[in-house]
Design a protein around this nucleic acid. Sequence first.
DNA 1: TTTCTCAATTGGTCAGACCAGATTGAGTAA
DNA 2: TTACTCAATCTGGTCTGACCAATTGAGAAA
Lengths: 224, 224
Amino acid sequence: MESLTTENIKKHFIKEIENGSISVGQKLDSERQLSKEFKVSRSTIREAIRELNALGYLDTVNKVGTYVCSKYLENARNKSSLKEFIDLAPIIDLMEVRYILESNFVDLAVNRAEKNDFQKLSNLLKKMKSKNITETDYYKYDLDFHYLIAKSTHNVVIVELMKVIRDRIQSNRELFIESGKQTMEKDIALFESIIENMKLKNVKETKKLYDEHLKTVTATIKGS
Amino acid sequence: MESLTTENIKKHFIKEIENGSISVGQKLDSERQLSKEFKVSRSTIREAIRELNALGYLDTVNKVGTYVCSKYLENARNKSSLKEFIDLAPIIDLMEVRYILESNFVDLAVNRAEKNDFQKLSNLLKKMKSKNITETDYYKYDLDFHYLIAKSTHNVVIVELMKVIRDRIQSNRELFIESGKQTMEKDIALFESIIENMKLKNVKETKKLYDEHLKTVTATIKGS
DNA sequence: TTTCTCAATTGGTCAGACCAGATTGAGTAA
DNA sequence: TTACTCAATCTGGTCTGACCAATTGAGAAA
């Protein structure tokens, strides 16, 4: 009886998960237990689990356990397919595309924004202006602002692209430089002008203002 | 000084790879060496490397070493997932995105085009000029021309997007209006001017010419 | 120069240890 | 009985040091 390798263990679990022998959400035995069951060292089990985490099959919670990831089956069925592509793309290239898209869909947004879109933008601004907002919150709201503008274009391709790009940026936050408190205030004022000009359907001015904001934002990739 | 975790190491390498600090194909230091450099145990390094292998960033060869992997985008799963997304998108929205992308990546293409890119463009033009070319052939070559310009940007996100968009257009050819024989000749002359101006790194003129072509092309969606 | 040899290096695996946070269950207090 | 407390136990994360077998590269032998 040959002894098992990390690769063997990995394939074993993939098979079990895919054919349903292990059901979604189920908790796996502990690493120590598994290492006994498969008669391999704990390291081997751990490395297999690491890979399966990265591949989206498992989800390990520190000091609690490893679970069969529910994300996996949803993803396989759903068309969150785009996300996978964007998530693996080099961030520099992605930011370049983001800039191209954003600086050019503003006019679509201005022309197509509806009452509902303005409502959402307005709600977001309120949140941004709240007193006890943290920089992390603000960072998220900033991204949301861009996303809402994208939504105003009512172009589903643009919306989906911007959605996954936003998520990617958010989960790679450490790559971007923090914006200070004063930048925040300046930004919010800018956002208000943008919305105001959108309501007036003033394409040129909106575009100018938005581009102004974009330039400060996209210049904040660390070390580029 | 907090000690580093597997997660830290992983993110460190992703960052280095994505911003190009570590180049594709490069060999990493050995696990033992890395564990000294980062002042963590070999297990921690190994687990990070495992994940990065699963994510497609690294490729580890037993008893030889770990290399930066060139295939983040060769991954079949990514490609097919992006394709799926694009294939299901409304064609009108897609064409809007295409127009935004194309009319804005020209400057990148001009600045980054290499000898090899010009070679491919030149070969394509030759095919276009051949006597017994059918309209179907020409239609395909036209799309290829756009794709080659996209490739000249050397931005993998742009390249992949344009590739799937091209495929989509090609398989929905019936939605577009045929271009006559004379348009073909006019186009080819335009293409030559574009390539000429790219070689001269004349961004402004190239952009103008390309946009001219784009307008005629994107205006041919039936019933829009 | 070319070929051969062998020790150093490499990734894969193992065993056993410690840590800190999470979980659990028995015992206590209400 | 019910609610709370807290210590023993369990879990994943990390560390150390070891052995294996394949690869590699420099020096010896031809």
